[in-house]
Design a protein around this nucleic acid. Sequence first.
DNA 1: TAGGCCATCTGGTCCT
DNA 2: AGGACCAGATGGCCTA
Length: 158
Amino acid sequence: KCSGNQFLQRAITREFKEKLLSEEEPEGSERRNGGNKESSKIATARAKHPWSSKDRHLRRLESNERERQRMHKLNNAFQALREVIPHVRAENKLSKIETLTLAKNYIKSLTSIILNMSNGHFPAAEGMGGAWGSKMYQHYQQQHGDDDHEEHLQKYST
DNA sequence: TAGGCCATCTGGTCCT
DNA sequence: AGGACCAGATGGCCTA
């Protein structure tokens, strides 16, 4: 859905904004939500971190970049999730909310399949979460023992 | 054109 | 102290 052009355009917009910002905002001016309440909040924050406006700007850019990277990681995780949940609309990308909803339903159906196959050896799936999760974990521990615990746990959870 | 979805920016809060 | 995380705001693109 997010085409290459769109990505490029966003990058350009970002650069443009950064240029605008770098034209030294006058001290105390507020670009967003310029209310009094808001500016006093910001004054407090600035008192807490008494950086020069150049320093502040630099730190802002750095945390923007970190936030962008974080969101990219999150989106990669969403993509990985999309690839493992079966769905009908293979031709177009699932939205995030669809991905989460489908994943939840998929887990539920797999759980009930396991329950059926195990013929009641596992506790009921009702009110899953805690009890069921810990039973599954116990089951996992019995299968793998304690030696290379961390490595297996990593594999198990990923 | 309205509404859905998304990326990005931002300031606040939590965590290490 | 500084980075991670979060939620609100904003604006762009796409589709019905």
